[in-house]
Structures are given as C-alpha cells and as structure tokens.
Simulated scan of single mutants.
Amino acid sequence: MWYVPKTKELLKASFSDSEIRVWIKQAAEYYGIPHVLLAVILQQENGPKGSKFLQTMQFGERSVTTLLAIVDNIAFDVVPDKLAGGSSGFANMSRATLQNSVKYTENYYCKKPLPEDVQYRIFGWNQDTRIPGDDWKADLYYAAGHLRELIDRATGTRCHSGTLTPELLKKVIASYNGSGPLAEKYSSDAMKLLDGAKSGTAWLYFYEK
C-alpha cells in the first residue's frame, strides 16, 4: 500500500497486520468513534478475502485514480473531475467526500484532520494532502473523520459519544456508501458481518482489541 513511513521506519520493509490494526484503532480514538465501525467499513471497502486477482485489479484502479488526483492538484485542475475525483485509497473515499469531511472537522471540532505525529511523521513533511490514497495512514483518519460526521448527522447530536443502536449504526454505514438500494445492501452486509463476528462465525480482519 502507499504509506509514508515515520523517519525511524525508513528501513522497514513491511508492516504486520497487528501494526496496521493499531493505526486503525488510533484513528478511531482520535475522532471518538467506535473502533469496530471503522474496521467493518474498511473490510467492506477492501474485501480481504477476495482473490489476489481482484485485489490487484482494485489496487491498480485506485492507484491510477490517486495518481490522477495528485497530477490534478499539481497542474491546477487540468484532469477532469470524473477521473481525478473518483473514490480511491484505503478507505475508498472520493476526493469531494474527503475534503468536505475535513472542512466539517475543522469547522465544528476545531481540530486538524490528522494528529501532528501522523501529519509530520517524516522529516516534517506534511502528509495532510487531502488526496485519497496519497498516504494510506492518512486515509484512516480521513475515513474516521467522515464517520464522525455521519454519526453526528444520524444522531442529530454533535460530538455524540453514546452507544449507537443497531438502527443508527446501519444508517451510518449506509450513508458511508451513499444512498439507494446498493447502500442498503452495503449496510445489511456490514451488519451481518458484525453479527457473525459477535457469534464467532465471521472474522473482522481489521479489528484488534
């Protein structure tokens, strides 16, 4: 995956599943959202049980979209939005959704979308590019911020920190995907995954206590 390492990680060739799951937990904690919610969204968007062929195709498609978005950012909006603005990255977010969620975080929570130890983790280089897929650790925080916004919207309460009912949880998950029948199926599949994880018949790949 496209990941910019910390300065002390420069010589590290790979990262364990547990390390990545810790990043996910930290992103959820930064925004005060349920850790399991971010984990199930990432599983829905990445299909860790999919075939290597499908995973490779998905990675390639998202990487091209990210590259076009980077070029578009440098070349002053020369790439059409339908190409550069598509969904990409670890959390499969569109550029518009990501940037709108960042504005929500800044306007209503008065905080940066990334904590400083993530934003400036290598030689003081700013990783808050607001381009999906440019840095997949940043993607986790952008996704968590968007879920924070969706939780607030679903509950009608800013900074909601209480328990989410199954109905509200399903509503938030559907909203992450969009609207209409496909979003409903997306949320139903996610709820089945959560129920299966509770009963021990399914595995939340991106979740670790």
Rank of each mutant, 00 (worst) to 15 (best):
N92T: 01
F90H: 08
F53M: 14
G145D: 05
N46M: 11
K52W: 03
Q58W: 02
V102L: 04
D117L: 01
G133H: 04
A154W: 02
L114Y: 09
L54Y: 15
M191A: 08
P115M: 09
L140N: 05
Y186D: 13
Y186R: 14
K6S: 09
Q99T: 13
H160R: 03
T129G: 00
V64W: 08
D77L: 02
C110K: 08
V64S: 01
Q99D: 00
L147I: 13
G162N: 02
K52R: 12
L10Y: 02
W23E: 13
G60A: 07
I173E: 11
G47T: 10
L67C: 03
D152G: 11
G133F: 09
H146K: 15
L140I: 13
K170E: 11
G32I: 03
L204R: 02
W2N: 14
R153Q: 10
D72M: 06
W125G: 00
W136C: 01
S63L: 07
E116P: 06
W2R: 14
S101Q: 07
K192P: 03
T157E: 14
R95E: 11
V79K: 09
K137H: 14
E208W: 07
Q58D: 09
G156M: 11
V172E: 14
Y205K: 14
G156H: 12
I33R: 01
L68M: 10
L114M: 01
S199R: 07
K192C: 08
W125F: 14
G156F: 12
T129P: 00
A144F: 08
L54R: 04
T66G: 09
W125C: 09
Y31F: 15
T155Q: 11
K103S: 15
G47N: 09
H35T: 13
A91S: 13
K8E: 15
P34I: 10
E9L: 00
A91H: 04
M93L: 15
R62D: 04
L168E: 14
Q119Y: 01
M57N: 01
F76H: 05
A154G: 05
Q55M: 08
G180S: 05
Y31D: 04
S94V: 09
L83V: 02
V172M: 03
S188Q: 10
P132D: 03
A84Y: 06
E184K: 12
T163G: 06
D135Q: 03
Y142I: 10
Q119N: 01
W2C: 01
F206G: 02
V22M: 12
S18F: 00
D134Y: 15
A174E: 15
G196A: 00
I20V: 13
E149Y: 15
A75D: 09
L168P: 02
N100G: 09
Q55P: 06
P5M: 10
L37E: 01
L147E: 07
G50D: 11
I70D: 00
I74C: 03
L54T: 02
